[in-house]
């Protein structure tokens, strides 16, 4: 098996249910529901979906920032959900995250240098000179001026702050990075810079990304493969070009038809979805998309569709493609 196709992260039947008590009534919110997929070493898996579909929760589950309710997560073949907090700590080095909001992701009372040095301290680097060296190296890698590191976060621009966030995630040389909407809070011109930076770093540092976004053009730019989520379920996953050119699931089709084409002469076929997102607190029978699906059949509200590989590498959960 060559290195490009070896599985780094494997997720099996992962579920996360949040319980919210309101007026004495216990409400269950199934943010992630029985998700199965693998992430290959060196690739970028783009994860798209509407706000609240569970994509961020899924990313946080893999890092165990949120403890999943059920399921298994394997990294390099080892089940990381069974590990105690102490046994998991070495894995923290290998699993990192870049956040969406560059303003709340940096402690306002620490200098950029202190922020970048902290991961090294946490992981037991006692030599201050070595720490200084490594901070310098990573700062240069992400394009930060070493002399500016004595400043506090509010003295940096949004793009620079995001670079600090990226440097903090990468200073421990992780293998896998969850990028949770890392460019959504940035200006469009800065977005491109940060995306290119992430792509360059992926190459030089041999990183694997789970790239979460609701922006299809960003996802298309950076991903190798793309997975689509709807209300806690994964509905479709395929190679980038295959997904964009031959989407199978009606939700993916609707999502892709919403991308604006900057040419008014091109005739467009838009699939418009009816209705709003159903309440996440009320479990939906059968396929979760059936309330809005333009192609629903009699079985859709009854039986949940099975997540299956229709073509090599192309997964979908829809009754249209079941025999």
């Amino acid at each position: 098996m060559d290195s490009m196709s070896s599985v780094l992260i494997e997720v099996r039947n992962l579920s996360k249910t949040f319980f919210i008590e309101e007026w004495g009534e216990k409400l269950a919110l199934e943010a992630v529901s029985g998700v199965n997929f693998s992430i290959f070493r060196g690739e970028t898996l783009g994860l798209v979906g509407e706000t609240g579909c569970g994509k961020s929760t899924l990313g946080r589950c893999i890092l165990r920032l949120v403890e999943p309710t059920a399921g298994e997560i394997f990294m390099n073949g080892e089940n990381i959900l069974h590990l105690s907090a102490k046994a998991f700590k070495p894995y923290r080095r290998k699993l990192q995250i870049v956040f969406q909001d560059p303003f709340s992701s940096l402690n306002p009372r620490k200098t950029a240098y202190a922020i970048l040095e902290e991961p090294l301290i946490i992981h037991g680097e006692k030599n201050a000179r070595l720490r200084r060296e490594r901070v310098k190296v990573i700062a240069e890698k992400v394009g930060l001026d070493v002399h500016s590191l004595k400043n506090y976060p509010h003295e940096f621009s949004g793009g620079q702050r995001q670079r600090i966030g990226i440097a903090r995630a990468l200073i421990l040389h992780p293998e896998f990075v969850v990028c949770d909407e890392p460019v959504s809070a940035l200006d469009v011109s800065i977005q491109a810079q940060i995306l290119n930076l992430l792509a360059d770093l992926q190459e030089t540092m041999h990183l694997t990304y789970l790239f979460i976004s609701h922006d299809l053009s960003v996802i298309r730019h950076i991903s190798t493969r793309i997975a689509v989520m709807y209300m806690g379920k994964m509905v479709e996953m395929a190679e980038k070009e295959e997904l964009f050119h031959a989407p199978l699931h009606p939700y993916t089709q609707a999502l892709l038809s919403a991308i604006p084409i900057p040419d008014p002469t091109v005739p467009r076929q838009r699939t418009l979805l009816e209705g709003d997102l159903p309440s996440p607190f009320k479990p939906i029978s059968g396929c979760r998309f059936h309330t809005r699906c333009p192609q629903q059949s009699a079985t859709c509200p009854e039986i949940p569709p099975v997540w299956q590989e229709i073509r090599p590498g192309h997964f979908v959960a829809c009754h249209l493609y079941e025999k």
Partner: peptide, 9 residues
């Protein structure tokens, strides 16, 4: 940034 700290262990 608290979540980031948790992610760092």
């Amino acid at each position: 940034y608290i979540e980031a700290e948790k992610a760092l262990g």
